[in-house]
Nucleic acid binder design. Structure first.
Length: 501
RNA sequence: GGGCGCGUAGCUCAGUGGUAGAGCAUCUGCCUUUUAAGCAGAGGGUCGGUGGUUCGAAACCACCCGCGCUCACCA
C-alpha cells in the first residue's frame, strides 16, 4: 500500500532503475499521445491471411515470452488481448528498450497482422513505443486452455479486500469484472433512453436537504458553515420530485445516489443508486404495466433475452407478471388477516414464526416482518405484490375500494424487492394526518419514521394531480441481471473502512 | 452490532512449538513463431500489530487492526 520511495520493495526498485535506463536511452517513459487505428477485437474479427494489414494499436503488456533475439507478448486494450511479435533484427534499438519493459507497461505498437505457426492471430511489430512505464508489479494471473477448451486461470487475483480497494487493478486483471460494469452502464442508459422516449424529463433535486424524507431510514448529517445549519444527505428523491409534479411537469425522473446511514452487507452500501419516476394523471395499475415494459425493454436491448440465471434459479421476465395481494398472500400462508388482526394477535403470530421481536415494534413493522418471513422468499419469478397496509406507506394513497390498505405495489424477483411504487397521496389533509402518525412513531422511538415536511404539505395544498410514482434500486437490479450476489460487485468503489496507514 | 472464519514473498497458497517453504512473478545466462514457452542459476519475508506463555512462537493465549461469510435492520 505504501508509496514512499524509502521502503519500496525489490520489484518496484527494479522498475525505477529500468525507468532511468530508458531515459538514458533517450526514451520518454510517459508519452503524450499515440494514434490508434485498430483494436484487438477488430483485428481478430477481420483477419485475412494475405492482406498483411497494417495496424496501430495500444494497450497494456499482460504477458511476455522472451526468446533471446525475438519475443512474444500479449497486450490488452479496451476490447481484450492480442499477441504481438518482436524481432531484434527488425526493430533494433527498440528491442533493447523492450528488454527494459515489463508486464503492466503501456505501449503503442505499429505492425502487420499475421497468424503464428500455432494459429494465433498476432501483430508483427515494426515499431514499438513506450507510452507509460508501470512502476508497480501487477498481480497478474496466467491463463491456459485445457483439452476441452475451458479456460483455466492460475493464481487469479482473488483477495476481495484488495480488489475493492484497488479496483483499478481488479479491472485490469479480472476481465469479468469489467464486463459487469459495462453491463451496468448499458442498463442505466437503456433505462434513461426508455424514459426519455416516453417524454419524461430528467431532473436533479437536492442531495443536501434541511429535512429528509421519502423513505424509512436513518440519514447522514453534514454541516453548512456559512449558514451554520446541519443538513441531511437525501435518503430518497420522492418529496422533491412530487413538488415538481405540483409545478406542472408532465412526468419527471431522477437517477442518482441516495444515502442511508445504516449497516453494510452484501445487499447494502451506504450510498446507492435509485431511479425514481413520477407521472401525473396515472395510478399504480398503470405503473405496473409500465414497469413490465421498462424491465422487458432492458432485457431486450441489453441482453436480448428474457431468461436469466440468478444463483441457482432461473428467472423469466416474460410478461404478464403474476400479481398477488399483500394481505391475501399472508393470509394464505398463515390464516391470519393482518388488517383485521389486533396488535397482540400479530405479536403472537410473529412469535410463532420465530421472528425476534425487538422493543416497541409497531403494527407496521410486525406486518412487514411477517411478510418477509412467510411470503417474500417464495417470490422467485417476477411478481407484483399489491395493496399494502396503510401503516407501512405514509406517502401512498388510500385504496379506492379496499379498507385499511393503500394503492401500492412492490415488484419481487428471486425473493428480493426490486421496485416500489404507488398511487401518490395527493390529499393534503390525509398527508398531514399520515405525517402526524409518523411523528407519534418517532416519539415512540422509531428513528426511521418521517418528520413533518411543511413545505411539501404546502406544495400539495396548491394541488397535485393524481400521480403514479416508482422507485427502482438500480444496484439490486444490476445484481439480479448480472448474477452478482454482492452489491460490492456492482459498485465500482464500494464503501470500505479506511485503510490503515 | 452478534456468531463463524481468515491475514505467511508482488500474486496464489503449504507450513500445529525447534534453521521460514512451493508454484507463478522478479533478476542473471542461453534461446529468432512462443503461448502456464523452455533450460540452468540467483535474490526476495518485522509470518497483520501489540503484549503474554515458553529455553525457544508463523504456530499457543489475550487484546487490537483489517477482510470475508452469516444473522439481525434497511433498498
Amino acid at each position: 500500500m505504501e508509496t514512499n520511495l524509502t521502503d519500496v520493495n525489490e520489484l518496484i526498485k527494479r522498475r525505477y532503475e529500468e525507468l532511468e535506463e530508458l531515459q538514458k536511452m533517450g526514451i520518454e517513459p510517459y508519452a503524450y499521445s499515440f494514434d490508434v487505428n485498430a483494436d484487438s477485437e477488430d483485428i481478430k474479427n477481420n483477419f485475412n491471411e494475405d492482406e498483411k494489414r497494417e495496424v496501430k494499436i495500444a494497450g497494456r503488456i499482460m504477458a511476455i515470452r522472451r526468446m533471446g533475439k525475438a519475443s512474444f507478448a500479449h497486450i490488452m486494450d479496451d476490447k481484450g488481448k492480442i499477441q504481438i511479435y518482436l524481432r531484434k533484427d527488425e526493430i533494433g534499438e527498440q528491442y533493447a528498450a523492450f528488454k527494459l519493459m515489463d508486464i503492466g507497461d503501456i505501449v503503442g505498437v505499429e505492425g502487420f497482422v499475421f497468424k503464428t505457426r500455432t494459429g494465433e492471430i498476432s501483430v508483427h511489430v515494426t515499431s514499438l513505443k513506450l507510452l507509460a512505464k508501470s512502476l508497480r508489479p501487477l498481480p497478474i494471473a496466467k491463463e491456459a486452455t485445457d483439452e476441452h477448451g475451458n479456460k483455466i486461470i492460475y493464481d487469479q487475483f482473488a483477495d476481495k479486500e484488495l480488489r475493492y480497494r484497488q479496483r483499478y487493478v481488479d479491472l485490469i486483471v479480472n476481465p469479468d469484472v469489467k464486463e459487469v460494469f459495462i453491463t451496468r452502464s448499458k442498463i442505466i442508459s437503456a433505462i434513461r433512453r426508455f424514459l426519455d422516449e416516453q417524454g419524461y424529463l430528467e431532473v436533479e433535486t437536492p442531495i443536501l436537504q434541511p429535512l429528509y424524507g421519502g423513505a424509512a431510514a436513518r440519514p447522514f448529517i453534514t454541516h453548512h458553515n456559512a449558514l451554520d445549519i446541519d443538513l441531511y444527505l437525501r435518503i430518497a428523491d420522492e418529496l422533491y420530485l412530487k413538488r415538481l409534479i405540483v409545478g406542472g411537469f408532465n412526468g419527471v425522473y431522477e437517477i442518482s445516489k441516495d444515502f442511508r446511514n445504516e449497516g453494510m452487507d452484501r445487499t447494502h452500501n451506504p450510498e446507492f443508486t435509485m431511479m425514481e419516476l413520477y407521472v401525473p394523471y396515472k395510478d399504480y395499475e398503470w405503473m405496473m404495466n409500465f414497469v413490465e415494459q421498462l424491465i422487458t425493454h432492458i432485457c431486450k436491448v441489453v441482453f436480448n433475452k428474457t431468461e436469466f440465471t440468478f444463483e441457482d434459479k432461473t428467472i423469466d421476465f416474460k410478461t404478464p407478471w403474476k400479481r398477488i395481494s399483500f394481505v391475501d398472500a399472508i393470509e394464505d400462508k398463515t390464516g391470519v388477516n393482518v388488517i383485521k388482526a389486533s396488535e397482540d394477535e400479530l405479536k403472537g403470530l410473529a412469535k410463532n414464526l420465530g421472528i425476534d421481536l425487538g422493543a416497541a415494534e409497531g403494527r407496521a413493522k410486525l406486518i412487514d416482518e411477517i411478510f418477509s418471513e412467510t411470503v417474500e422468499p417464495e417470490l422467485i419469478q417476477p411478481t407484483f405484490v399489491v395493496d399494502y397496509p396503510v401503516e407501512l406507506s405514509p406517502l401512498a394513497k388510500k385504496h379506492r375500494s379496499k379498507e385499511g390498505v393503500v394503492e401500492r405495489f412492490e415488484t419481487y424477483v428471486a425473493g428480493k424487492e426490486i421496485c416500489n411504487a404507488f398511487s401518490e397521496l395527493n390529499d393534503p389533509i390525509d398527508q398531514r394526518k399520515r405525517f402526524e402518525d409518523q411523528v407519534k412513531l418517532r416519539e415512540a422511538g422509531d428513528e426511521e419514521a418521517h418528520q413533518v415536511d411543511e413545505d411539501f404539505l404546502r406544495a400539495i395544498e396548491y394541488g397535485m394531480p393524481p400521480t403514479a410514482g416508482l422507485g427502482v434500486g438500480i444496484d439490486r437490479l444490476v445484481m439480479l441481471l448480472t448474477n452478482q450476489t454482492s452489491i460490492r460487485d456492482v459498485i465500482l468503489f464500494p464503501q470500505m473502512k479506511p485503510e490503515n496507514q
